[in-house]
Design a protein around this nucleic acid. Sequence first.
DNA 1: CTGAAAGCGCTTACAG
DNA 2: CTGAAAGCGCTTACAG
Lengths: 335, 335
Amino acid sequence: MLEAKVTSQDVARLAGVSQSAVSRVFTPGASASKATIAKVRAAAEQLGYRPNPLARAMITGKSRIIGLVVAYLDNQFYPAALERLSNALQDKGYHILVFTAANSQDGIERVINDLMDYQVDGIITASVAMSSDLTARCAGAGIPVVLFNRGQPGAGLSSVTSANVEGGRKVARFLVGAGHSQIAHIAGWQGALTGRDRQRGFVEGLADLGVEACGLIDGMYDRDTAAAAARVLLDGAAPPTAIFVGNDHMAFAVIDQARAMGRVVGRDVAIVGYDDVPLAAWGAYDLTTVRQPLNRMVEATVETLLAQIADPARASQQIEIDGPLVVRTSARGEI
Amino acid sequence: MLEAKVTSQDVARLAGVSQSAVSRVFTPGASASKATIAKVRAAAEQLGYRPNPLARAMITGKSRIIGLVVAYLDNQFYPAALERLSNALQDKGYHILVFTAANSQDGIERVINDLMDYQVDGIITASVAMSSDLTARCAGAGIPVVLFNRGQPGAGLSSVTSANVEGGRKVARFLVGAGHSQIAHIAGWQGALTGRDRQRGFVEGLADLGVEACGLIDGMYDRDTAAAAARVLLDGAAPPTAIFVGNDHMAFAVIDQARAMGRVVGRDVAIVGYDDVPLAAWGAYDLTTVRQPLNRMVEATVETLLAQIADPARASQQIEIDGPLVVRTSARGEI
DNA sequence: CTGAAAGCGCTTACAG
DNA sequence: CTGAAAGCGCTTACAG
């Protein structure tokens, strides 16, 4: 019942050539005569032969597998990124070993160990940070790493993010321009550069216009935490008329919370997110937000990673991609 | 700069034993004396040795890699499933090669080829169907397959789904019990057993109570298609007072559409979904829906797959897991 | 261009 | 329990 697996030996026998000849026909860049190629291809076709990538990986040290480490899959931004990353890499002949890591150094450590065992050719981490000794280990093993949607100050790793500081500034200008002066920020998490940058741009942008944020709380990228922060802000003596939230995922929770407190979002309180995930455009939220240009971020990530795989000596690069503010009804251009 | 990779040879040399001895210490079930084990472990520790899984895979034919084929990652149900599946399998020492496939036979065919090349020990397909010849090829290659949230009539494959027929019945009883008589259904897709089963249970359930659906349209698991269907239904001469939608993802679009037409959901029109994804519980939708017990479905999937890997002769099994109707404000118990 | 041979890092009979 | 040896399916110098 089980098909015996067919090897290059079988093909060689049928084609009347050596096993090395078969290997050369299937090795890009190796030389073989037209006649040999024809005979081998015919035999391979007939037998249904396909080279064993595991054997190939063992000998070349190139597995054509990319490790993808993701967390926060409940934030719609990451499944969307995973899907596009996976498609783009598949098109380049790579395969994706996915790891869902709790965002703890411990979990990530285990994952990186596994990735190194499988001799992945490169690693993409989405949304998780890496400690510096993990970084060092990957570098030591010669495995290129690209951080997706996270920066790592001073680690010398490549990263692809949106222009977070400028994004924060855009929101500040927009809200002040709309006439708000009581403006609060529910940030991501101070431990993540992404969140810090958005906050910094936002606070600086406000300052440039002579405004100071009336509230600043970490939402930890978590719905419950963000909702609790919103409750505190809106319950205050002088509640904000506008809230900038560190990402869309939390902004949805903030909107739910505001509505539960009887506020009409977009009228009583303006709410702005960051990401522009698909859900932001759905009728129930219609969220004003800064778009992270996912397709371009994915392209840049794949390009950077493959370039580093091709040339390990290549310098790492930090890429920032600018995205527009998308205005919807959760925060209009005027009060 | 690059750490030379350390092999079992290196460990053997340092420990003063043969290379085979090292291998045995790291092979579960192989026999080695306490003394040998101690020496080898110490040497391995010192050198930072970890067995090369690729080499091991080539010789044993077991890669400890599971292929996971997913589509529809914009439907929140699947990222959630992916995350849990990945965690559960990681705990069992397996790794997940993820493929995002367009739901076409062509795309799936390519993916299956790749999976077979990588000698995956098993395949889980979430949300995609497989043609019968693909099924035959996997069987021929001795690779166990489990369908997650999809059935495949007559293919002899294992599958794990919720009790879809019964789920459809529950919705019928609920809506009729609430006093509705003008009831429509926006189904999934007739090409998918899951969708057909939900529809069948629903229609039969209505019939048992002497009610006939006033509208039946396929939503193709697509937001736009589902919204268009809702518009047609609600624009009709005798619009339904209740709509059962084939999954939550489409139900959100139906709610958005109904609201855009000025209807108050839960009062003017009752809407029921299927899945109970996290978003269903969020304030903006608060969707009444049939829960698919994700954790139990994942457990059953992993268990079935590993059992079939351990014993390839094992008969396939179709597992159905019952889930409750969760009542929220989009459709209450009474009109 | 091509074949014989070595070797990638392991596991597993085979003898002791 | 243990070592020497064969072999998993390939790629790649090495000679022709």
